[in-house]
Design a protein around this nucleic acid. Structure first.
Length: 491
RNA sequence: CGGGGUGUGGCGCAGUUGGUUAGCGCACCUGCUUUGGGAGCAGGGGGUCGUGCGUUCGAGUCGCACCACCCCGACCA
């Protein structure tokens, strides 16, 4: 088999690519910087999407859909926003092709130039706020709590499967509120939803914090993020939620009449997570044998592999497997029975490890005799024999156990790789030699942050919301600081 | 956009100082034997050698240009 995976030690980037491609999550496409999400990868994304969608609905949001194309002029309405995105926008300039008059092929028809060019959305604040203007007149129209599942395009110079592609899938929530307090509360509510999702479904520990001014979303007053630590010691921003203040309301002139019959600008939030979460999932749990999936997001939680010599043995095994699967299904567990006869069991074992199926059950003639099965867990690769009549309850607790173990393992890794430093020398040493999260005092200025980035490539990932106040001195300037920020090299 | 690398059946690669029907492993198809950690044997199918131009009696091989992708940077989720 050409399914060998590069080890993490040898080449972490290659390891990541190997997992994504060889586990069947995604493929490179014929389009530069764009990928194909394959059925197995998409099945995982669907599980994420369904759960997030459920959580959005639970918090009062509705889905809607806004256009892919945004008139170019909309972008110039909000100054910071246009500056943030201008460099990576795909632009539609024409609407027709024609046969090349000079010979072969097809060319853009210059006669079909658009009056106003269209930007392929890199995010939808502008088109949405242009729309909200016509929806909002009074405080009775507020709040508006809308989410959309969509694709967006950001023309990145350098792309990586799931982590950064020219086109990606995401959801973007866009809400409008009558008061600042309500909007801030919404932005915080949604970053907490993301945090809960990451922890409970992805088994990925994250830190909730606020972005520094220079890392803030283009057009936001405050950006909250969840930050996760990958196995190579680099940080990954896994979700963001923005308090947009009245910036977009002012840019698009969205006012409402309050209870006192006064006109006010509307307060806004936006928040999103993307298929980047797939990359986070891979880099949080997987190992040199392949993908490792938390049971709650695994398309197949348990795979049955038969071991047999004769048709009779296969028939006997299949009969037992059928019964066991019914029992598991009744407990809400998803299973697959791999009875392909052109692959040996050993091949299948390796394949399901590569694909990260949480639990594998092997069953052969010896098990039929003894009334047992062999149960193997993907996270630790441990195997045990379990009697058939106890399989269902064993698997139920095993799946819970795996889900918890993955989280704990990732949390321990993060704690081992989180360092508090007091001096800049110490800071540089830790960033260069170990990586991970580095907690350091910072004077709060963009200048100092830029200097640190220049020196070390490390950036402020966030200022954690639950970071206790303490008196300290900025590691660079020595100026007083009340709180530590988290620094790291980042994706 | 800078630096490095790679383009040869589906995948991974070999291909000598240019030389005749372009090979190998895996995968695929057929058959038999196998099956508790990536099976064996036999037979079989599949390639305008990334694209273009050039040098030459002759180009996978030499030259120039272009394209694509990967890795490392700068920029970003």
């Amino acid at each position: 088999m050409a399914k060998e995976i590069t080890s993490r030690n040898e080449n972490y980037s290659q390891w990541y690519n190997d997992i994504v491609v060889k586990a069947g999550l995604a493929d490179y496409s014929a389009v530069r910087g764009s990928m194909v999400i394959k059925p197995y990868g998409f099945a995982i994304w669907e599980k994420m999407r369904d759960q997030l969608d459920h959580m959005f609905k639970e918090t009062g949001h509705q889905n809607a859909y806004f256009p892919l194309f945004i008139p170019k002029s909309f972008f110039s309405r909000e100054a910071a926003h246009v500056e943030g995105f201008a460099k990576e926008c795909a632009v539609v300039t024409h609407y027709r092709l024609k046969n090349d008059p000079n010979g072969k092929g097809i060319v853009v028809d210059e006669d079909a130039k658009l009056e106003e060019e269209l930007v392929v959305r890199p995010t939808s604040e502008t088109i949405i706020w242009n729309t909200y203007k016509s929806w909002i007149q009074s405080y009775r129209d507020l709040p508006i709590l809308i989410n959309q599942w969509a694709n967006v395009v950001r023309w990145e110079m350098r792309t990586r499967l799931f982590l950064r592609t020219a086109e990606f899938l995401w959801q973007e929530g866009h809400t409008a509120h009558a008061t600042k307090e309500e909007a801030v509360e919404e932005a915080e509510r949604m970053i907490n939803v993301y945090s809960t999702f990451a922890r409970e479904w992805m088994a990925m520990p994250v830190i909730i914090g606020k972005k520094s001014e220079s890392e803030r979303f283009a057009g936001a007053v405050d950006t909250y993020s969840i930050e996760a630590l990958m196995q190579d010691g680099k940080a990954l921003q896994a979700g963001t939620s923005h308090f947009l203040g009245q910036n977009f309301a002012k840019a698009f002139d969205v006012k409402f009449l309050n209870r006192e019959s006064q006109l006010e600008y509307v307060w806004a939030t936006s928040w999103g997570v993307s298929t980047r979460l797939m990359g986070a999932l891979v880099m949080t749990h997987s190992d040199d044998n392949g993908l490792v999936l938390p049971p709650k997001l695994a398309p197949t939680q348990v795979v049955f592999v038969p071991v047999y010599k004769s048709e009779e043995e296969l028939a006997a095994v299949s009969e037992v497997v059928a019964k066991l699967r019914v029992e598991l299904h009744s407990k809400g567990i998803t299973t697959h029975y791999d009875d392909r006869d052109n692959y040996k069991p050993g091949f299948k074992f390796a394949e399901y490890e590569l694909k990260g199926v949480p639990v594998r059950v092997a069953i052969g003639p010896r098990d039929i005799e003894k009334g047992t099965v062999e149960v193997a867990r993907r996270d630790t690769l441990q195997k045990q024999f379990v009697s058939q009549n106890q399989l269902a309850e064993t698997v139920v607790s095993l799946l819970d156990n795996i889900q918890a173990n993955l989280y704990n393992r990732a949390l321990e890794f993060r704690e081992r790789n989180t360092t508090r430093v007091e001096t800049y020398d110490e800071f540089k040493k830790v960033i260069a030699e170990n990586g991970g999260f580095v907690l350091a005092h910072w004077d709060g200025t963009p200048e100092t942050e830029a200097l640190i980035k220049e020196d070390t490539k490390a950036t402020i990932r966030c200022i954690p919301l639950d970071m206790p106040e303490e008196d300290g001195k900025c590691i660079v300037t020595g100026k007083p600081s009340k709180k530590r920020a988290i620094f790291a090299l980042a994706y």
